[in-house]
Amino acid sequence: MSKSLSIFHLNANNFSGPIPSIFIKGCSLQSINLSGNKLQRRLPKSLINCKSLRGLDVGNNRIRDKFPFWMEALPELRVLVLKSNKFDGNMLLPSRSNLPFSKLQVLDISRNAFVGSLPQRYFKSFRAMMDVKENQTPSDDDAFQDLFFEMRITLKGLDQLLKRLLEDFTIIDLSSNKFSGTIPRFIGNLNSLRYLNLSHNNLMGHIPASLGNISVLESLDLSSNKLDGGIPNELTSLTFLAKLNLSMNDLVGQIPQSTQFSTFENDSYVGNLRLCGFPLTRKCNEENGQRMQPEEQDDEDDEYGFIDGFGWRSVVMGYGSGIIVGIGIGCWIIRFGRPRWLVEFFFGVGYTYNKNKKKKKTRKRATPTQRGT
């Protein structure tokens, strides 16, 4: 690694083994792309010598390591892609910097095995994702944006190749890990964030209303978690939102209605059994916006609720069985005249069962025998 080398791209090959620790002091690399190989073991900490590094992509390898907290000291880092590896552990170690990753625009650590809570302190320090237009200053990054940048990421559910990093392009993808806890409200401070994916984790609690502050958000994916509560009405202010996925959670209540929300279909909400309202076919109670359910009826409607608890098949089977039993009992009564009180109730007092026919039949059967004697 000479001090004059700026681009180190060996992506989409079959390299294996560890990444060698070859990054010397005074390293002038601005872009490193080693994605799509079979690289293993850990990231070399000698990367800290590359103070001009703006983009690092080691996605789709077999690297087994903890989160590289030591990269917080890279002052120019804009892109950090660690997706589809074997990184694990949590992201809660104390920061050694006042503003870690202050210039980071792209953080993609999806499809790994990170655990614990979401990194709140990073959400507070990602200055490049806050007030981009106000904080934008002239820089010499045009060469990096036009020539040195190449990255494949997932946008709105599609795998795309980016060859230019715009000043206002921002993305956080923490999906398909084992993060738990709640979504911190501080995430709403990242008001210049465009793509947010926290899907396929173990996140709980409510969707923070502060997400409505991210006015430029284009894609929001919170699917396959354990989120509960209602969908905040504040999300209707996200007029640039083109992709929304809240499926496979425990959300309740009415889906907010707005011009933007009317463009999302059923698959945005599937798997939330207590959500109601358009575009779902489940209707809501007009008073509280909750789905109308028989078990939530008042005490005075208990009788109707009890009846509603049985399906039509059970009712038909009950009626059918009763008719058959009733016909059988009726035939028995008519044939034998028992019980007498019931016979007199239906056929009138004084009704007697005609036994003459029975006696005649008995005599006829006995006649041949008598003649023989």
Rank of each mutant, 00 (worst) to 15 (best):
M1S: 00
F8V: 06
F8I: 09
A12R: 06
P20M: 02
F23I: 08
F23N: 09
I24G: 01
G26R: 00
G26K: 05
I32C: 00
N33S: 04
L34M: 09
S35A: 14
R42P: 00
P44C: 05
P44R: 11
K45V: 10
N49C: 13
S52G: 03
R54V: 07
G59V: 08
R62F: 15
I63E: 03
R64A: 10
W70T: 05
P75C: 10
E76L: 05
E76K: 12
V79S: 04
V79I: 13
K83Y: 05
S84M: 03
N85I: 12
F87W: 09
D88V: 06
G89E: 06
N90T: 13
M91V: 10
R96P: 01
N98C: 11
F101C: 04
L104V: 06
Q105C: 03
S110A: 15
F114P: 00
G116L: 10
L118W: 01
P119Q: 07
F123S: 05
F123A: 11
Q145D: 12
D146L: 09
L147S: 07
T154V: 04
G157A: 07
K163W: 04
D168K: 12
T170A: 08
I172C: 07
T182S: 08
I183A: 05
I187K: 04
N189Q: 12
N191P: 02
L193T: 04
N197S: 14
N197A: 04
N202T: 09
G205Q: 05
H206G: 02
L211D: 01
D228T: 10
P232V: 11
N233K: 10
T236K: 10
T239S: 13
K243Q: 12
L246E: 06
S247M: 06
N249V: 10
Q254G: 05
Q254N: 09
P256Y: 10
S258V: 06
E265K: 15
Y269S: 07
R274H: 14
L275N: 04
G277A: 07
P279Q: 09
P279W: 01
L280F: 13
T281K: 14
C284V: 00
N285D: 15
N288P: 09
R291V: 13
R291K: 12
E296K: 08
D299E: 14
E300I: 09
E300A: 02
D301S: 12
F306W: 13
D308R: 15
G309K: 09
G311P: 11
W312C: 01
M317P: 00
M317H: 12
G320T: 15
C331T: 08
L342V: 15
Y351D: 03
T352Y: 05
K357Y: 12
K359F: 06
K360L: 08
K360H: 08
K361P: 05
K364I: 07
A366M: 00
Q370W: 11
G372P: 08
G372H: 14
